[in-house]
Design a protein around this nucleic acid. Structure first.
Lengths: 176, 176
DNA sequence: TTCAGTGCAAACAGTTTGCACCGAG
DNA sequence: CTCGGTGCAAACTGTTTGCACTGAA
């Protein structure tokens, strides 16, 4: 399957033209520009959180980000930042498509830095340690074989499609 | 315009072809036998819950099952059953593979009656009303096209693979 | 100066746990 | 009769909300 339509949620939030790089992770400068371009303030908590986010190599939870931001010292001075602010910032960053929500099925919301080109990938999750690997290739059909080839055993998958159903296209009904 | 009828009885959603001897739906007798075979007691709450579960045509939450069991009248007399018991029973049923947990990404645990043949299917979720359709076909490659053909727009998907990673095969590490 | 953004407390939703009682086997 | 199963209360986790204060623009 080639080219998945980028998600349109919160399409009123525009990515500034300067925000997009070439499929790799955004730099801090780009991320900050994205914020200001959207008319948002560049506050200390947001800077600290964005800086911390850029360091993660795995999807992270709000709690983990909170801890990482609090622990930050040296380069960026540790900014006092409430956990509530973490949640609110993640919401903001997600709306701006700076980060994407990752559902690993354990009921806790996780996030990762987005690729600005809108490309998405899938994950392999170890059923024991819950460590996550990102997959480059999005050809779903061969994936399980690929994953077995990576040394995983007991490979299964979880796949859901999300779309706007015909009746909701006609008459939007409230989300249940 | 009424939008969506609130009832869950979508005729196109069935439990698929299976090993069931009595049509497309698993029978209560089979489910009860499964319980007793496992050495578990056939208590009134369990019977009531299993009966209610058999009526659902969509993945249901613990709360929904709780309400459904409480509302049960006529055929099965309404059994007083605590929400906690619902959770515990769902855990039990899941362990017995009588029901499967379904993750629709909204953070609430949902369940559906399993196919006894162990087959699994995927779901299409309306991004607005959150109604769910089960897919017969599990050939992932053509799915998005199939879903567009069903009238959905803005089709995207969520796919995760779960397996036991090489290092956990060697030395089990605690789940993070 | 001004209001978006924040901290704090508290509410909230979904789920789990401790414990004494109950009832299916 | 026994012990698995249950109800009830209460803890717990992750997340959201209300409100007054603060600091970036």
């Amino acid at each position: 399957v080639t080219g998945h339509p980028p998600e349109r949620r919160n399409s009123h939030v525009s990515n500034g033209p300067g925000c997009h790089s070439h499929g790799s992770r955004p730099t801090l400068e780009q991320a900050f520009k994205c914020l200001t371009d959207a008319g948002l303030k560049l506050t200390k908590p947001r800077c600290a959180l964005m800086t911390a986010i850029a360091q993660f190599e795995q999807p992270f939870s709000a709690e983990e980000l909170f801890a990482a931001a609090a622990a930050r010292s040296g380069a960026a001075k540790a900014v006092r930042c409430d956990l509530v602010t973490v949640y609110r910032s993640l919401l903001t960053f997600t709306a701006l498509k700076l980060v994407s929500k990752v559902d690993l099925g354990d009921g806790v919301g996780r996030y990762e830095l987005s690729n600005f080109d809108g490309s998405h990938h899938h994950h392999v999750i170890c059923s024991l340690c819950r460590r996550v690997e990102a997959l480059k290739d999005c050809s779903m059909q061969r994936q399980e074989k690929v994953i077995s080839g990576m040394g995983y055993t007991d490979v299964s998958h979880r796949l859901e499609f999300i779309g706007l159903c015909p009746s909701c296209q006609d008459s939007p009904s409230p989300t249940r």
